[in-house]
Design a protein around this nucleic acid. Structure first.
Length: 220
DNA sequence: GAATAGATTGTCT
DNA sequence: GACAATCTATTCT
């Protein structure tokens, strides 16, 4: 059995379908982050950058729910130029720079003045694989293309200029797709948040090869 | 496969 | 001035 199933055999949307794909409505994002994070699994992130279209199936997400959530940038109501967009209306992009070199992409959820966001941690490439491979300096079939927050931003061409863009009207959006199974696990690298770090606010598609850090099996 | 160190800069204390 | 919602190369087993 091959390690990676060829895309043609996955039953996932093909290029013609992606060309007519529509953005999810703002009402989809106007719910708390834990709900949106779960519902985003299996949806498709699409970036139409001039002639270059890249798209990927969302296979891993994390919810951040300020002001209560001590792992969120908006914890305790913290409001700075960096996280300002989290306090705006839902359906916009929140990008931030990590470790001075990697961008991370989030969608703002909930209502105005309720600073929730969902971090996209991993995608399964669907479209524009040559473009992604060139941006990532990796082979087209490699899971290293998009199996992490920084990696997927590089592969999808997401950077500072996408901070605050409207995901409901523009070349960067998320399209609907059938529901998929999911598992939950604790969020990655938020140990500073004490008990909040232990909450199962990470969602992923079980067994998907593009999920970043392997989730620990649930206790039974 | 697992563990470790180093990269590199915006942001906030 | 400390450090981050990370990634990569290297060095082990």
């Amino acid at each position: 059995m091959p390690r990676f199933q060829p895309l043609q055999q996955t039953g996932l949307p093909s290029s013609p379908q992606l060309e007519v794909a529509q953005p999810l409505p703002r009402s989809f994002y106007a719910r708390k982050a834990t709900v949106v994070a779960r519902d985003l699994l299996g949806k498709i992130l699409i970036h139409q950058q001039g002639p270059l279209t890249t798209a990927g199936l969302i296979v891993e997400t994390e919810a951040y729910q300020g002001p209560e959530d001590l792992a969120a940038h908006s914890s305790k109501g913290r409001r700075t130029p960096r996280n300002e967009v989290m306090y705006g209306p839902p359906g916009h992009a929140y990008l931030f720079l990590l470790y001075g070199m990697h961008w991370a992409f989030n969608v703002v959820t909930a209502q105005q003045d309720v600073p929730h966001a969902v971090l996209l941690r991993a995608l399964q490439p669907l479209e524009g694989l040559p473009t992604m491979a060139a941006r990532r300096h990796q082979p087209e079939h490699s899971r290293l293309l998009t199996n992490g927050p920084g990696k997927l931003c590089q592969a999808m061409g997401l950077r500072r200029e996408h901070y605050g863009v409207d995901l409901c009207d523009g070349p960067l959006f998320i399209a609907n797709a059938p529901k998929v199974p999911f598992i939950t696990s604790p969020r990655i690298n938020v140990d500073y948040a004490g008990a909040w770090a232990a909450r199962p606010w990470r969602w992923s598609i079980p067994g998907n090869a593009w999920v970043s850090v392997k989730p620990k099996p649930a206790q039974s």
